[in-house]
Design a protein around this nucleic acid. Structure first.
Lengths: 356, 356
DNA sequence: TTGTAGGCGTTATCAG
DNA sequence: CTGATAACGCCTACAA
């Protein structure tokens, strides 16, 4: 009847004042040790790396732990070891469905390997991004940057403190996962050529975006190969609205087929063209990029180059976990495939100069 | 020259083996104390609650901290205090755009108040949800459950250990944020009635969903008020596919207007009806729920009852932070407004029995 | 206002 | 194989 364990504190009137910490604090390895009649350090061994303790004591300890509903205190563990079983993911824009897949992929593989995911958004700002990265870096084992907006130097700086993996970008010395755009673009351009198109416009994304350049280069190369003329058009923002705004330029360009930096632009563009009475795909074919959620809601459904974002998230998390678990050399730039998803917004050209 | 502190271990050749922990470990309050010529505890005070230290030493310490690029070790802090400046959010389905808004709202308000967000998905499984909740609960200060699938008892259990806020559901004794469906539903039903509809079908969501019941009750009540007949139709899954599958039942029901549990169902339903040659909205009007991303991509664009998910996320996080910061009594059930967003998928009935 | 000392729960190092 | 014991970095009475 001494003051051994905090048992029936429900009655002690003076207690129960603290607003926080309402439930009883959970058991520690000391409690287990006491119950099992061994030393706390033995408990620690038994519970972390099994095998370093006799089978008998092992069971003894496990039983005690179960009885006490013991759960490790992650902070106490993190203090000496520095490891937290936590990954951070920073995305450029949470509202952009492109990132949904990345989040999902990263979250599921993290969870599957008993890690948990911390999420932050940069809101397309390099500063916000860096702040978030720094804030989370102290807490996590590793960091995934999806379409980062900060410059290479900063990213390398971060990568020096903790393992970092970037998605949708390549940074020297930092492992990355990037879609290989060329396959999908090649398929798309060949399809357009086969359908009688002779001039392609590429609607670009934000200038800080590493990806918009890669995609433009891919389009340009593929067009040359297929002997198509091609031209780049800047956009205001990589959103549906941005797509609407660029419609006028598209028409003015004289191109009969448009490829866009992303699906949002493609959808806005299509809406605006249709509103202006320009038939899609009869007068102008549209090919988006990413195959986001909702790309098939439009009429006609959007032809697009699918970029497997979920796979990117999965691969990035896997890569990061490998590094964390001591893999010395990891492939610096993992490629995932892209593919053309042919739907209704692209097709045979039925323009005036092309009599049926 | 005693064995005071672990200082220059950088040269000990045997070291430097550890693959992890590549960068130099960061400065501690002891380093700051030494540099500023004060006691570590003074540093602690100066850096946590300002004002408890003389202005002079304060500045001294802050300068030293800056010079050393000091950053607190969250684990070391969490160990004695128990606080981590971290919130957890568990959503039922990451791929469901309904939750994007919630995630965004929660993330942004957390970040704004210098908390960071941990994210997990239950994949619509009560078990997974509980596991994730338990796992994260040890690490975070509080928990947000968006459309939880586990039963009330479990939720209350969790709420006993750490503050919990639920979204899209009400649980006795646990603060919650729920959209007040009645306003939006009322607007929708009145609009349908005014457009000549006499019979409304409600396509339900998953049985475990608290919300589907609330919405059905709302629809039923509103229909009674407007003297409309109404009928409930079960759905297989609350997805686009589920919507397609229910199309046949909808037609068979004889209803001329359909309200669905969510937009996904509405979109699938519309696709299938159109494919079957049923004009929307001329023959059948469709009203969705949520106003998710992409709801206006369809042709016709989807009429829907907007449920402000971002606001839910924001409010939930705010609520949780208030509790965390010692607010004694918080409103147990915070309501956010819903509203009808009138677009093209609903309108005047032009059915056969209703000659123009 | 500032310094002292003990503790938070685990891991790791050494003896036994 | 197991038991002591010292970190880990910070917080917080309590004392000066």
């Amino acid at each position: 009847m001494s003051e051994s364990r905090t048992q029936d504190l429900s009655d002690s009137s003076a207690e129960a004042r603290k607003p926080v910490r309402s439930g009883k604090s959970s058991a520690t390895i000391y409690d287990i040790a006491k119950l099992a009649g061994v030393n706390p350090s033995t408990v620690s061994r038994a519970l972390s790396k099994p095998g370093r303790v006799s089978a008998k004591t092992q069971k003894l300890i496990e039983d005690a732990a179960a009885q006490l509903e013991y759960r490790v205190n992650p902070f106490a563990r993190a203090l000496p070891t520095g490891r937290t079983n936590t990954l951070a993911l920073i995305v450029a824009d949470i509202t952009n469905p492109t990132f949904f897949g990345i989040i999902r992929g990263a979250e599921s593989t993290a969870t599957a390997r008993d890690y948990t995911l911390m999420l932050a958004e940069s809101a397309e700002s390099a500063d916000t991004e860096l702040t978030a990265a720094r804030r989370m870096l102290t807490t996590v084992d590793g960091l995934i940057l999806a379409s980062p907006r900060m410059d290479d130097a900063r990213i390398r700086e971060l990568a020096q403190e903790k393992p970092v993996v970037v998605i949708n970008r390549q940074v020297d010395g930092v492992p990355s996962v990037v879609p290989d755009v060329n396959k999908g673009i090649g398929e798309a351009v060949r399809n357009l050529a086969a359908n009688g198109h002779r001039k392609v416009a590429y609607v670009a994304g934000p200038l800080q975006s590493w990806m918009t350049t890669r995609r433009w280069e891919g389009v340009k190369a593929a067009c040359e190969w297929s002997h198509l003329e091609c031209v780049q058009l800047p956009s205001h923002k990589p959103t549906v609205d941005g797509g609407r705004q660029v419609a006028r330029d598209v028409v003015a360009s004289g191109a009969t087929a448009v490829m866009t930096y992303n699906d949002l632009l493609a959808i806005g563009l299509m809406q605006e063209l249709q509103a202006a009475g320009v038939q899609v795909p009869d007068r102008i074919s549209i090919v988006g990029f990413d195959d986001i959620f909702g790309a098939d809601f439009t009429t006609p459904a959007l032809t697009t180059i699918r970029s497997p974002m979920t796979a990117c998230g999965t691969e990035a998390a896997t890569l990061l976990l490998e590094v964390l678990h001591g893999a010395e050399e990891v492939s610096p730039a993992l490629q995932v495939e892209t593919e053309l998803v042919l739907r209704g917004s692209s097709g045979r050209l039925l323009a005036a100069d092309h009599p049926a």
